[in-house]
Structure formats: C-alpha cells, structure tokens
Simulated assay, not measured.
Amino acid sequence: MAAAKGDYEPAGELKIGQVGIANLRVRTLDVERLATEMRDRVARAPKLFARAAVVVDFGGLARTPDLATARTLLDGLREAGVLPVALAYGTSENDALAQQLGLPLLAKFRAQYEPAAGTPSAPAPAAKPAAREITAEAAPAKAAITANAPARAQHPGGEPGLVQLTPVRSGQQLYAENRDLSVLGTVGAGAEVIADGSIHVYGALRGRALAGAQGNEKARIFCREFHAELVAVAGHYKVLEDIPMELRGKPVQIWLDNEELRIAAFD
C-alpha cells in the first residue's frame, strides 16, 4: 500500500559514519606482485583481511594506469581475497578512471595507514599503512564514540585527552581525534581503538589499536595485557601472528624507531 499523503518516513535511513576500510597505496604498478602481496596478507591474518574493503590509491604513481590495467588489478585483488570498493581521490585522470570502473572516489576516511616511501600519503589523503603496508586498515571519517559516553581529561600538552571509563566491546570503535586515548578497562576482540595521539589501555588489549592515526610518528601504544589482533603507529603495523609468543599476555609498549614498529615488555 502506498504511504499516506504527508507521510515522509523514508524506506531506508542513510547515515555517514566512520568505517574500517583499508587503503592500498600502489607504489609499483606490478599487478601480479600486488596480488601476491595481498594474498599473503590475507593468508597471514584472514580474520583481519579476508573480504576486507579496500580503497585503491594510485597517488604514488607518476601516471594513472589505463582502464585495462586497472581492471586487471582489481580482479587480481578480488582473487587474492579482498574487495576493492573505491579509488582514492587524485587527479582528474583518476576521477575519469573511477567513473569508467564504476567505483566511487573516497577522500580521507580515517587515518593514515600507509606511508609511501619517502613521502607521506593520505588516501587522497587517506591511509598510511604499515610496517608492511596496510593502509588498512583502515581509515577515517568522523569519530564514532562508543555508546558509553567517555569522559575528557587533560593530557600533558594541555589538549583534552579522551578517557573511556567502560570496556570497548566487540564491534565498537572509539576514535580520539587530535588527542590521546586512555581506556580504563579492556578492548575486546573485534573492537577498534584509534587515536591521533598515543593510546593507553589499562586492561587487556584484544582488538585493534591504531595510534598516530594522522601520521604522528612519536605516538605510542601502552597496554597491561597484550593480545591485540593488530597494532599500528602512524600506519606501520603488526598483526598478532607477527608478535613473539613471549610478549603475549604481558604489559607492552609499542613505538616507531626509524620507521620500524617496535614492541617491548615493560614492568
């Protein structure tokens, strides 16, 4: 039955929010190599990368690839186990290519997960991936604060830090924009905490923690009990499979040293 006149209730509610999307910044246009690298990532951490949404960023190339090459790359990525969903903003040629591929363009959607060699990148402005490249990860938009409204605190720089008083549960995402983040409880498996500054977790860290989201290489991650699925600082990342067994379940700190992600136990 047709809606009554004057009834403007939409059939579908559209909202724009923060989503977890990986950004693949193409540095060398070698389709076979790119697909192989992605296949390896999926094999190493299938819970994180299998069927992950990926934005393809051609901003690191001298020239935008032609339509046939781009299609071959997208097909290769799909066969590797991920789902290309958009191109990152770039030149007018990149815009035209996106239209030919039938894909949207995405600008900065979360954080920078993929540092390009020598030049910081943002998925047009987007991602700065990681100690291998993930741009994955991940990446934003505006902060989706968890359902439990967190309190604010002051961190040393005088900027307000974000304090989460309750656990961050599976499926929740917490983003501290332009500040540090402190979680007084645990970060559950499948949860994600992101900060443009450092991250402090006073309980167990089981989900994902992404510090220095806008490229701050001095940011650090601290936690009392390390079981993280993925950790990243300024785009450099490691997954749990990369972490020595002796560090699991221990208090650790994570930082960048000459663009290499370091993880060490502390008392």
Rank of each mutant, 00 (worst) to 15 (best):
P120G: 03
L67Q: 12
I134S: 12
I134G: 13
G157K: 12
E137I: 15
A86Q: 03
R78T: 14
A124C: 01
T64P: 06
A139Y: 10
Q99R: 14
A96I: 10
F109L: 09
Q154I: 15
L83F: 13
T166L: 05
A122W: 00
R71G: 13
Y89N: 06
G161S: 09
V56Y: 01
G102S: 02
K142E: 08
A136I: 05
L162D: 00
L101N: 02
G76Y: 09
A138H: 12
S92Q: 08
L67W: 09
R78H: 12
A117T: 11
N94W: 00
A62N: 14
T146C: 09
V163M: 01
A130L: 09
A151N: 11
L106G: 03
E93P: 02
P104G: 00
G90N: 01
F109M: 05
Q100S: 14
A111P: 01
L73K: 13
P125T: 07
I134A: 13
E159M: 08
K128G: 11
E133N: 07
E114Q: 12
R78V: 11
V85Q: 04
L83M: 13
G157D: 15
P129V: 10
A136F: 05
K128C: 04
G60L: 13
S121N: 07
T64C: 15
A138D: 10
L103R: 01
A122F: 05
G59C: 05
P123W: 04
P84Y: 04
L97W: 02
A111V: 03
N148H: 12
Q100R: 14
A124T: 04
Y89L: 14
G60H: 13
K108C: 07
A136Q: 02
R78S: 11
A138L: 14
A149R: 15
A131C: 00
D66S: 09
K128P: 11
G161D: 03
A88K: 08
T72Q: 15
R71C: 06
A122Q: 02
A151S: 15
T146P: 08
A88D: 00
P150I: 07
A107E: 02
